[in-house]
Amino acid sequence: MKILAVCGEGIGTSVLLKMNADRVLKRLGIEALVEATDIETANTTRDAQIFLTTAGLQDKLVAGAAEIIAIDKVFDLEELSDKLAAAIL
């Protein structure tokens, strides 16, 4: 499974999302490749199953067949875990 962590620039917020997603996925026992990237790159990527982003950015994403998960609090691992589990498990 491939997950894209997306923010406007691909260097800050998305990297933090990726770090916390990696942590949570490990805990959930889910094997997935999480990549941090910017919106433009995400919108031309077609091999990801999930786009993970922060609240407010989801409207900018053209996800195609991928599911979009918007996170309100990047460091609330419970929110991240619940939303990822709901989408994947």
């Binding site: 982003t53 950015l57 900018k60 460091f75």
Partner: peptide, 14 residues
């Protein structure tokens, strides 16, 4: 352009 998505935790913006 993209809104306040940089506010990623309560009280905190990156």
């Amino acid at each position: 352009t993209n809104g306040p998505y940089i506010v990623i935790a309560p009280g905190f913006a990156l």
